[in-house]
């Protein structure tokens, strides 16, 4: 029992995401996939989907979709109002959407990205084993547009039955990101390391799925010159010539020529994906 999902309101940027396409970085194809992976997994679990099923990742102002068959849906990630045909329903829980009804995911409250899982998943054709839209490489389905239609897969099983959804809430004192120093921390001055951990940075509005950009004091280099292109990992904190650290997220380039002062371990990246522009950022260097 597959079906079709019609996009009623695409929102600022809503993309199809799953767990990404590992194993292709040597071809210039990055990992991609949901930025807040725990939220993506949880949404799938609530509707009885396996974790690799594709969800919708919204940005800031949600989206609205209309399935042509009855479907179990769940919205996780940033808290937001969820409505079915205008009637409020639970966020972070499996809800029933009748055939032809509109599931509306409202504006983000305290976070940035919501994840919308639908029983059976969004069944667009995979590209290199993944349905994720990679905004840097252009692989995967186009971001949603009003009126677009997306195939729904057949439901896989009963919903997971989780009835309590953990949400830490927006961090009270801003975003705290541990940074394992290296491989190029020796390209920076000791003062730069103090600046990095000084808490003077904020999330820049120029942040996107490629990277969490920051505003604030510049990190001074201890050495000049260019770094020959080298492989980049998820969570790498790259420092471009303007000195403001950029934390690489799922759609990051596979190689780069600016020095990486350290790496944010993956478990902390979900919080980075939910940090709104202006959120204070404190990097906490961790010795190798």
């Amino acid at each position: 029992m597959s079906g079709t999902l019609t996009v009623v309101r695409a929102g600022a940027l809503t993309t199809v995401q799953d767990l990404g396409r590992p194993g292709h970085a040597h071809l210039g194809v990055g990992l991609s996939g949901a930025l807040d992976r725990p939220a993506h997994r949880l949404a799938n679990r609530l509707v009885g989907n396996p974790a690799p099923c594709a969800t919708l990742e919204t940005t800031v102002n949600g989206c609205a979709v209309r399935p042509d068959r009855a479907v179990t849906a769940a919205v996780t990630g940033t808290p937001c109002a969820v409505r079915v045909d205008g009637r409020p329903v639970a966020w972070g829980a499996a809800v029933r959407v009748p055939a032809g009804a509109v599931l509306d995911v409202g504006a983000a409250v305290g976070g940035v990205r919501a994840y919308v899982a639908l029983g059976g998943g969004v069944a667009v054709p995979p590209v290199l084993g993944s349905r994720s839209r990679d905004l840097l490489s252009g692989l995967g389905p186009e971001p949603l547009t009003d009126g677009a239609k997306l195939p729904l897969g057949a439901p896989c099983g009963p919903s997971g039955g989780a009835d309590v959804v953990p949400w830490a809430g927006p961090p009270a004192r801003g975003l705290v990101l541990p940074v394992v120093l290296g491989p190029r921390d020796d390209w920076f001055t000791a003062e730069a390391l103090r600046v990095l951990s000084g808490g003077g940075h904020r999330v820049s509005p120029a942040s996107n799925r490629i990277g969490l950009r920051t505003e604030g004091p510049a990190l001074a280099r201890a050495r000049e010159g260019e770094l020959p292109s080298e492989g980049m990992v998820l969570g790498a904190v790259q420092v471009p010539p303007d000195g403001r650290p950029v934390v690489f997220l799922a759609d990051h380039p596979t190689t780069g020529g600016y020095p990486v002062i350290g790496v944010v371990p993956e478990p902390s990246l979900a919080a980075a994906a939910q940090a709104a522009p202006g959120t204070p950022v404190r990097f906490v260097p961790v010795r190798k």
């Binding site: 590992p22 194993g23 970085a25 040597h26 020959p228 292109s229 080298e230 492989g231 596979t254 190689t255």
Partner: peptide, 8 residues
């Protein structure tokens, strides 16, 4: 991933 680059 095994990602070669210019010198790494």
């Amino acid at each position: 991933e095994i990602v070669p680059a210019a010198r790494t």
